[in-house]
Simulated assay, not measured.
Amino acid sequence: MKLKYALIFLAGAAGFGWGITTILNHWDRNRDPDRLAFILNISQIPPSVRNLDCDASATTDVIVTCSFEIDPQDLDKALSGWQFTDKEALGKRAFYDLESADGHVWLMGNKEGTAVVAERYDE
């Protein structure tokens, strides 16, 4: 009987821990999907985005940087918000660059398109 209650307690504690982690990740701006959507100029990030880590450290201009992993078939969805004119291959990396009158957007990832670093700068 004690084993049954112990298992119920452990299952409840695990569920509670998962729920708290999910809530904290939403509040943690370093894992906020809206930051990545802002950089990419899309309304919603592709569902395969994982291991998202963002940073915004500027004081006067807007500079947001995110690193993430994505399934290669979803990379085109992530790139659809901007009209990137060219893609450069730099060794084992792919580089997308876009300059505008008020800022700059760039993405760099591996050639497979599974690991990406994206940055947006607005004056």
Rank of each mutant, 00 (worst) to 15 (best):
I39K: 06
D76W: 00
V62E: 05
D74Q: 04
W18P: 00
I63D: 05
P33L: 02
N110C: 11
G15Y: 05
R35C: 10
R120T: 11
Y96R: 04
Y96Q: 04
G12E: 00
M108Y: 01
G91F: 04
V105C: 00
Q73I: 07
V116L: 07
A115N: 15
A14S: 09
H26I: 07
G81Q: 05
S48E: 11
W27A: 06
D53M: 02
K87A: 07
W82N: 09
E99H: 15
L24E: 15
W82T: 11
L75D: 08
D102V: 05
S100V: 10
R50P: 14
L90M: 05
L107Y: 03
W106K: 08
D55R: 15
E123H: 11
P33H: 06
L98K: 08
D61L: 02
I8S: 12
L24K: 14
G113R: 08
T21S: 06
L75Y: 06
K4V: 13
L3K: 13
L98C: 03
N41V: 08
P72N: 11
R29P: 12
L3W: 14
M108N: 00
A94G: 14
Q83I: 04
K111F: 00
V105I: 04
Q73N: 06
H104G: 11
L52Y: 01
A13E: 01
S48A: 13
A58M: 00
A13H: 01
K111H: 06
I23P: 15
L40V: 10
S80Y: 11
A56Y: 10
E99K: 14
K77E: 15
D122W: 10
L36Y: 02
Q83V: 10
K4M: 11
I20Y: 10
D102L: 08
V117W: 05
I42L: 09
D55M: 14
T85G: 14
P72H: 13
I45M: 02
R29D: 12
Y5H: 10
S100L: 09
V116Q: 06
A11V: 14
P33R: 03
D86F: 11
Y121R: 15
A78N: 12
F9S: 12
